[in-house]
């Protein structure tokens, strides 16, 4: 996975999203150790302070925990990860629905279309 940022929004927000996505998709699996702030900053080519802030935010949400000597770990609370996954899904759904609204579809019509698409695929 590569780190890509769109230019309009704060990098910090995008880092939080990307890290959360990596955790819920298992790229950084439950209970696994995360690379250090400096390593991650170098990998993403972002400012270490910004990376640090993003990690602190995730820690605040309970998705990450710090062990004083051995570094940062992804939570092994599967329910928490599942909730985060749903929260991220919610954002996509909201985006989808508001786009559809712009096109003049009601929520029901939009969902119907999405369901059709799902059926088509099968």
């Amino acid at each position: 996975m590569s780190w890509q940022f769109d230019s309009e929004r704060p990098i910090y927000t995008q880092l939080v999203e990307e890290l959360a996505l990596r955790m819920v998709t298992g790229c950084y699996g439950p209970g696994s150790r995360l690379p250090s702030v400096r390593e991650l900053a170098a990998e993403a080519r972002v400012n270490p302070n910004t990376m640090q802030r993003a990690m602190a935010e995730l820690e605040g949400r309970g998705l990450l925990r710090t062990e004083r000597t051995s570094g940062r770990f992804v939570t092994d609370d599967l329910e928490l990860l599942e909730n985060e996954k749903r929260r991220l899904a919610r954002v996509h759904v909201d985006n989808f629905l508001s786009r559809m609204a712009e096109l003049g579809f009601t929520t029901e019509q939009a969902l119907e279309l999405a369901a059709d698409k799902g059926v088509d695929n099968q």
């Binding site: 704060p10 990098i11 910090y12 993403a44 400012n47 302070n49 910004t50």
Partner: peptide, 25 residues
């Protein structure tokens, strides 16, 4: 993306300054 703070310099004066994410926001 590497910066956390910027100074905009114009004709020998700072015309804008601040945190990168704050300015983007």
């Amino acid at each position: 993306p590497v910066l956390d703070h910027v100074l905009f310099l114009k004709e020998g004066r700072i015309v804008m300054e601040g945190g990168v994410d704050e300015l983007r926001e």
